[in-house]
Amino acid sequence: MTGEFVAFFILSLLTIGGAVFMISFTRVVHMVISLGITFISIAGLFVLVGAEFVGVAQVLVYSGAISILMLFGIMLTKHDAYDEGTGRKWKNRFILLFVALVFALLFWGIQNTAWPASPPPAASGVSNAKEIGLVVFTEYVIPFELVSVLLLVALIGAIIMAKKEGDNE
């Protein structure tokens, strides 16, 4: 029972609990709040693995931006929306069976693979953020620039899609 195990247990319990509550709630706003808990716990898992920069980015992007954007989307459409799921029983049962099959297959695969023994933590001299920065700007420069172009395209595309039709001035 190390401290790492206790932290992992609590964080993964919160992660899975938030996801399961997201599925079982019926009000859409409650779903977004419980998914916010999941996102913050995943950030905790990232910090636990030693990826502090990714954890902070997760808090900023997912639990900050995406949750608020989803709340905006709900408030701008049906602000007291309910989601009872599709009412067809046989279809839901078939999907549940399919998902259970996928779960069983992947579980079997994970359990039966010989994973490499976890290496001793290499004590690198630089911090996590500096390490990421060094690799991004030496090996991944072109993907980095392409991602910035993608963000610009998504910005312009979102404005054009959400603009009212008809005012072409």
């Binding site: 954007l69 989803m70 963000l151 998504a154």
Partner: peptide, 14 residues
């Protein structure tokens, strides 16, 4: 994460 953020923004616009 970047691609997911772009996807959510466009999806909500649509």
């Amino acid at each position: 994460m970047t691609v997911a953020a772009a996807e959510v923004a466009l999806g909500l616009a649509i």
